[in-house]
Each structure stands twice: as C-alpha cells, then as structure tokens.
C-alpha cells in the first residue's frame, strides 16, 4: 500500500459556458518521506491538483473522477468532518503568497493556537509552548514577541516562516507547498527553500513541491511530474527528467533554464503559449507548439510510454522506442 496514491484524478469546473476539465487522468504515487516536484507553466493545473488532494476545491470546481488514496482511505470520498481531521493535521499546505495567507486581523499566536486546538484537546498554555517551539524551529528570532504580533508587522520572509511553522504544528506526514517561494525576494527564496527541505528531511515528512522552476525541483525533489494543460506529460525520477528529458515540452523547459543559456544570449523560450482549458486542441495538447509534430499528434491523445524510469505521454517518444525495439 502506497502512502499516497492518486488514481486517474479528474477535476471539472462547471462554468456557465459548460464544464471544463482542469485536471484529467492524473495519477502518481508517493512514499513516506519522499519528495515530489510538480512543474509546468502557470495555468497548467498545479494548484488545482494540490487543492484536489486536500479535497479543498471550491465552487465551481469538483473532483469528477478518480481517487486520492492516502493512508488507506480515499480522501475524495470523506465527509467534510472526516476531511478536517486530515487537513492541517496529517497533510499540511503552504501557500504561494505569504502576504495574503495569514489573516490580517488575528495575531500570529491566535492563528497557531487555533490550529492545535482544532486537532487535539490542549490548553491554551500548552498550545502556546508548542507554537513557540515551532517558531524557533523555523528560525524566527524572539518567537515569544511574534506570538502577539499581527501579520502586517512582519516581513514577507518572516511570514512564510510562520506559515511553515503553522504547517509543522501537528507534525504532519505530508506537506504540499504551492510555489512557496515565488512571491518572495530572490535573496530569501533560497533561504526558505533550504529551511523547508531541512525540516522535511529531519522529520521524515513527505513533500509535494509545486513550482514552475525546474531548477528548484532538481535541487529538492527525488521525483518529478511535468504538467501541461491539466495532464501529466512526463513523470519519473527527477535526475532522469533533468538530464535526459524525453518530452519535447520538458526539453523546452530545460533549455529555457537560465543556466542553460550562454551569457549575453536571450533565454530559449518555447514559442507560443499554453492553451486555455476551453481551447485545448485535439490530440496532444502541446502539438501546436511542438517542433516534432506529426499527423497523429493532432488526432489522438498520446498514451504513456515507459522510457528508462520515466513515463512520457508523447507519440514521437513511442515511435522512437518502437523503432529501437525492432532494431534489437
């Protein structure tokens, strides 16, 4: 039994113009303490995937197929009450923009204590002690004073540390971090990322790290998923994906990394942009931007082809694999 196993997950947004699928046929698994990166352009469905795992999608979005097996139960089928015992307790989430994530009218202490008290019988005093200990763990200076402060009195980096501390309060087994450093100054991005990695490693906490930065994924995670227009297009060990990407889209993402560009040259961006959910082309969603496009790409959805440790949804990769097999 896997620790977390997502099977054929599908999320639909019921819009007035009709239903659109923000997530289609998403499957992956995670072992305890393992770290998984999810990359893709903005709008690829990364955040939707994160919220779907926690069963936190709000109208008009909902899970329309598939399951989220976590510690033996399907989170997609739990009642709201059962789900509350998972959220913030077994699985914690870290949001993108620390300036918006904390409630502006409640103190840091209030926002930490309430989380502890929601999940266990604990006195105010004991909860404060734990909260202060967690604040110390995320290296916040003079945590006792922070407890009485309001979010607006703290910097962005400090707030993200506090949010990480909140995520750690109940000693979760899995943390989902949705672009945890995107909104921060470049100088503190690495600091926060290191801290998060450190804490996950030392506490054997699983991590799903959502980012559009392949560089971060290669430093932090063991496994990676590349998403495009609501689907997984490539999944496998991070090292393989970075060093030997198969899907033309993934290859494009890697070529676009700043360290892959010669100094003084423009970044190698993939021409075109990702389609909106209403305008996904037939066949492979990437086909209009693909350099290797074939006729079949415009007609049928590519199936997953195993390539090394990776699975790739690409017709060209399949053709090449088949040829290689025939030559053997």
């Amino acid at each position: 039994m896997s620790f977390l196993r997502v099977n054929n997950l599908e999320v639909t947004f019921e819009l007035r113009s009709g239903g659109v699928q923000a997530l289609s046929d998403v499957s992956f698994s995670l072992e305890r303490g393992e770290r998984l990166g999810i990359v893709g352009e903005s709008g690829a469905g990364k955040s939707v995937a994160a919220f779907a795992i926690l069963n936190l999608l709000s109208r008009p979005g909902r899970i329309t197929a598939g399951e989220v097996m976590f510690e033996g139960q399907d989170l997609a089928k739990l009642t709201p009450k059962q789900m509350r015992t998972i959220r913030g307790n077994r699985i914690a989430m870290i949001f993108q923009d620390p300036m918006m994530t904390l409630n502006p009218v409640l103190t840091v202490g209030q926002q930490m204590v309430e989380c502890l008290q929601a999940h266990r019988q604990i006195s105010q005093k004991d909860a404060c002690t734990i909260a202060i200990r967690k604040l110390r763990q995320v290296q916040i200076p003079s945590p006792e004073t922070r407890m009485d402060q309001y979010p607006h009195e703290l910097s962005g980096g400090m707030r993200q540390r506090i949010i990480i501390a909140i995520a750690l309060l109940m000693d979760p087994v899995l943390i989902i971090a949705d672009e945890p450093t995107t909104a921060l100054d470049v100088t503190i991005q690495a600091e926060i990322m290191d801290l998060l990695l450190d804490l996950c490693e030392s506490n054997n906490v699983g991590l799903i790290l959502i980012t559009h930065d392949l560089g971060v994924v290669s430093q932090v995670t063991e496994k990676a998923i590349v998403m495009y227009a609501g689907r997984i297009i490539e999944i496998g060990p991070t090292k393989e994906i970075i060093n030997d990407a198969q899907h033309p889209y993934t290859q494009g993402l890697i070529k676009a990394l700043p360290q892959q560009t010669l100094p003084g040259h423009r970044l190698n961006q993939i021409p075109g942009s990702m389609p909106s959910l209403q305008g996904i082309p037939a066949g492979c969603a990437f086909n209009p931007r693909c350099d290797f496009v074939m006729d079949i790409c415009k007609q049928t959805l590519p199936e997953f082809t195993a390539s090394g440790g990776c699975s790739v949804a690409c017709h060209m990769v399949k053709v090449m694999k088949d040829q290689a097999r025939q030559e053997d």
Binding site: D97, L102, P104, E114, C115, A118
Partner: peptide, 17 residues
C-alpha cells in the same frame, strides 16, 4: 474567497470558527 480563508480551511479549522 480570500487566500487566508482558504488557508484556514487547509488548517482543518471548524467551519463555525
């Protein structure tokens, strides 16, 4: 609809709170 309310849900707080 705000982020801090979504975060509050993600913390597993009771709806009344």
């Amino acid at each position: 609809e705000s982020e801090y309310i979504k975060f509050a849900w993600a913390k597993g707080l009771a709806p009344t709170r």
